[in-house]
Write a protein that binds this DNA or RNA. Structure first.
Lengths: 214, 214
DNA sequence: ACCTGAACACCGTTCAAGT
DNA sequence: ACCTGAACACCGTTCAAGT
């Protein structure tokens, strides 16, 4: 019945388990202590206060997000593949990613992907500010999309749902559109469509960046 | 010194003031009561518990976000103007928008803009599923961008900043790119660039949607 | 109809005291 | 070096009691 000495790693693992299973609100110091079979105050000795525990948890998630490998034979395809891989990785850890986002480490998390993207932009012939802008555009696109997507999934029951809101009168006599907007979003498809549009535009050197104002 | 009878509106206004001034964490029932000069328990009579108070607060924000007027002479320009107006409105209420997002009412908030966008897509000749997809692509783009943007602003001091991370070796011998990625983001410009790319692609009927896979 | 204080079950955190 | 319980200052919420 005597437990082996508590370690910081052990605390972290239990904390991650709690967050994954019941969300970040369930991660209280007292519950964690019960889970570990120790006094609340022992946790403080190993990982400091709750704030630094969350920091460590998020740090670990950022490390886990490290690897991405572009695939495909053109810069366009390879950029799209990085973006898709990133989306997948983000979607596998929804609560932890939300915590990373809340704590402002989204950029750090994105760095390996950013480096891969830089390489592809160079291959595609982009340099300097133009390449930097292209990299960031893709980054914002992916992270933003995943945040919105996740939000939609977490709250499938909007109080007046899109479905109820998009009855025929408001849809401008376009029943197919009304049906489409009332139905669920094909997020995968929407993601690829927007991404393709963005990447195509970024890699075409003809258009002046900033585009026509109207 | 006797205060006039407390009203639900009064409670809501004080709550909004607290959130705006000190963030959502500062909105505790006890602090709110002190602010209002009443007992904590009075608040419960007027607005129910904390959860429903936050609901009401968010509801009010969604209502406030109602109006947007497209400007410009082409559908392209008018769509871009709606997106920009929306971004501006979202950025004026950062904490409240975060709360709307957390509570899953982002869609409801976007509805008036969505209706305006549908109109413009129709004018541009898009119909049915294609139009619906275009509307949603713009919606995801704007909301996602603002979420990322807001996150970056809230945490300007990344522990290893992008600046430190992008020293010359990692940047692939492109000092201008390194400088650009190390510096601050021109969010306005990035927003417009990505948006222009997206809208241009959505409104061009030549390209098959879904694009080349690589 | 509206307001109140007391009480309950939770929090995070500190600290002196143990081994 | 590691663990503990007691104590403090906070929470949200309920409820019986007041007017």
């Amino acid at each position: 019945m005597t437990r082996t000495a508590l370690t910081g790693e052990e605390v972290l693992a239990a904390a991650a388990r709690l967050v994954r299973a019941q969300g970040p609100a369930a991660l209280t110091m007292r519950r964690l202590a019960t889970e570990l079979g120790t006094a609340v105050t022992s946790i403080y000795w190993h990982v400091g206060n709750r704030e630094s525990l969350l920091d460590a948890l998020v740090e670990r998630t950022v490390r886990e997000m490290g690897e991405i490998h572009p695939v495909g034979h053109t810069p366009h395809a390879r950029i799209v593949s990085v973006a898709r891989a990133l989306r997948t990785a983000l979607r596998e850890r929804p609560q932890l990613i939300a915590m990373v986002h809340e704590r402002g480490l989204t950029e750090r998390m994105f760095l390996p992907a950013q480096q891969a993207l830089v390489h592809e932009m160079h291959t595609a012939g982009l340099r300097g500010e133009l390449a930097a802008e292209a990299v960031r555009a893709v980054q914002f696109q992916v992270v933003g999309f995943v945040l919105v997507e996740r939000n939609r999934e977490r709250s499938p029951e909007q109080h007046p749902s899109e479905g109820e809101l998009w009855d025929s009168p408001t849809a401008g006599h376009d029943p197919a559109l009304a049906r489409a907007l009332a139905g669920p979003v094909d997020a995968e498809r929407l993601f690829v469509v927007s991404l393709e549009a963005l990447v195509t535009s970024l890699l075409s050197p003809g258009e002046p960046v900033g585009g026509p104002a109207g």
